[in-house]
Simulated assay, not measured.
Amino acid sequence: MGDQTQPWAERTVEVPPQPGVGVPQQRDAFRRGVAPVGRSGTPRTEPFPVVEEPTGTGWPGAAAPRRPMSWHISQLRRGGEWSAAGVLFAFVCWGIWAISGGGDLVAPLLIFVLSLLVAAGLFALARLVGRVVLEQRLGRVRHSARGAHLVTAVFLTGLGVAWLQQTEWVVSAWNWITNN
């Protein structure tokens, strides 16, 4: 059987030629080891003719196929962790600002809700700009909403920093840390 220390892929078994068994005669001028690429011989005829029917997909000027709503929703969810992190940061900063202000929390709560509505509008605007620029002008397919989520997260992070800058004890603590 040979040397068993060789890996299995390198082991070969020699088969002696057997009388009466040979390579069968090939048709269509087949030669072993030679590919018939680029030869201009007799044209091959297909057993079944190929008939192309316009289905509407892939034809110039045809509308793109409609995708199900679940595809659109899954596309919007991709990148949502950026917006979630921005909302969480803005909420914590808003909470510090609202509690430090003392008094009634109705006005600060209204400000927070309006800020979230502005962030949602910014997200929608970023998606619209992405659709016009990427899909309609450049002809690319968007596979996620990461860009719009990132724009929204940057806005919410800046909003949270602005709330912290309006909190007196946070500003004085920041000044004390940076001056020492």
Results as ranks from 00 to 15, higher is better:
residue 86 G to V: 09
residue 114 L to M: 11
residue 75 Q to T: 14
residue 81 E to K: 03
residue 116 L to I: 09
residue 85 A to C: 03
residue 93 C to Q: 04
residue 61 G to A: 08
residue 77 R to N: 10
residue 93 C to K: 01
residue 79 G to H: 02
residue 110 L to V: 15
residue 75 Q to A: 12
residue 97 W to K: 06
residue 73 I to L: 15
residue 83 S to F: 05
residue 103 G to T: 01
residue 63 A to I: 08
residue 107 A to R: 13
residue 95 G to F: 04
residue 103 G to E: 03
residue 104 D to M: 01
residue 70 S to E: 12
residue 88 L to D: 06
residue 65 P to E: 12
residue 61 G to C: 10
residue 111 I to E: 13
residue 98 A to E: 08
residue 98 A to I: 05
residue 105 L to G: 00
residue 90 A to R: 00
residue 75 Q to E: 13
residue 71 W to M: 11
residue 108 P to S: 08
residue 88 L to I: 11
residue 81 E to L: 10
residue 91 F to P: 00
residue 115 S to Q: 12
residue 69 M to C: 11
residue 90 A to W: 02
residue 67 R to H: 13
residue 101 G to C: 01
residue 71 W to L: 12
residue 112 F to K: 07
residue 115 S to C: 09
residue 79 G to W: 04
residue 114 L to H: 08
residue 112 F to E: 02
residue 76 L to R: 10
residue 77 R to L: 15
residue 79 G to L: 07
residue 116 L to Q: 11
residue 93 C to F: 01
residue 112 F to H: 03
residue 87 V to G: 00
residue 102 G to L: 00
residue 83 S to M: 12
residue 91 F to S: 13
residue 69 M to S: 13
residue 108 P to G: 08
residue 103 G to S: 01
residue 65 P to D: 11
residue 109 L to T: 15
residue 77 R to K: 11
residue 108 P to C: 05
residue 89 F to E: 02
residue 103 G to L: 03
residue 80 G to D: 03
residue 114 L to G: 10
residue 101 G to P: 00
residue 73 I to Q: 10
residue 82 W to S: 05
residue 111 I to K: 09
residue 94 W to R: 03
residue 111 I to C: 04
residue 61 G to P: 11
residue 65 P to Y: 07
residue 107 A to Q: 11
residue 101 G to I: 02
residue 114 L to P: 00
residue 96 I to G: 01
residue 94 W to Y: 07
residue 95 G to M: 10
residue 111 I to T: 15
residue 115 S to A: 14
residue 110 L to Y: 01
residue 109 L to P: 00
residue 72 H to D: 13
residue 88 L to A: 15
residue 89 F to R: 02
residue 89 F to N: 01
residue 113 V to A: 13
residue 69 M to K: 09
residue 111 I to N: 11
residue 84 A to T: 14
residue 82 W to I: 00
residue 69 M to F: 14
residue 115 S to Y: 04
residue 65 P to M: 07
residue 80 G to L: 08
residue 100 S to Q: 03
residue 76 L to H: 10
residue 115 S to V: 08
residue 77 R to Y: 04
residue 73 I to D: 05
residue 79 G to T: 08
residue 60 P to V: 09
residue 72 H to C: 04
residue 109 L to M: 10
residue 111 I to Y: 05
residue 60 P to R: 12
residue 94 W to S: 10
residue 100 S to Y: 01
residue 95 G to I: 02
residue 115 S to F: 02
